[in-house]
Computed example of a mutant assay.
Amino acid sequence: MHAIISLVAGLIFGLGLAFSEMTNPAVVIGFLDIFGNWNPSLIIVMASAISVGMLGYWIKNKRIKPLFADKWYVPTLKHIDSKLIVGATLFGIGWGLSGYCPGPGLTALVNNPSEGVYFILALILGSGVHTLQNRTA
């Protein structure tokens, strides 16, 4: 059941990305171009995502346990540390420069393979560096 729910959630997420054109890096970069040809559509996508997240937490607070799991898996860390700040900064810089975050980056392997390959290689390299850094820390 977990695999089916994960597949359905991934398909809904992917369709949402495609429908909102968030798989198109020009749309994301257009959102960041506030002094040029600004494209505010990302605000609607973010507001929709926040609304879904809020609904999820509302459901979590109303139920003792999820329908298809033994317990809720909710992040427990609440402090902001240097790793979070550096990671968020690097993510934001990469997203702003390329117009891709991991979900749309995967779709770029099909939609725009010449850029997608570089993005995915950088994603794998960055993940590897993070893993090595945390292994030795």
Score class of each variant (00 low, 15 high):
H2K: 14
A3R: 08
I5K: 10
I5P: 01
S6A: 10
V8N: 03
L11M: 09
I12N: 00
I12K: 01
F13H: 03
G14Y: 03
A18D: 11
M22P: 05
N24K: 07
V28E: 06
I29K: 15
L32S: 04
G36E: 07
M46Q: 11
V52H: 04
G53Y: 12
G53W: 12
Y57K: 08
Y57E: 13
I59A: 03
I64T: 09
I64K: 12
P66K: 07
F68P: 00
F68W: 10
K71N: 11
Y73R: 12
Y73P: 02
P75V: 12
P75I: 11
T76F: 07
L77K: 13
K78A: 09
H79I: 09
D81N: 15
I85W: 03
I85V: 14
V86Q: 05
T89F: 15
F91Q: 07
G94I: 04
G96D: 02
L97H: 03
P102M: 08
G105F: 09
L106Y: 14
A108R: 02
L109P: 09
N111S: 12
N111K: 07
N112I: 06
P113N: 01
S114D: 10
E115G: 00
V117M: 07
F119D: 05
I120Q: 10
I124F: 09
G128V: 01
T131L: 05
T131K: 01
L132D: 03
Q133K: 11
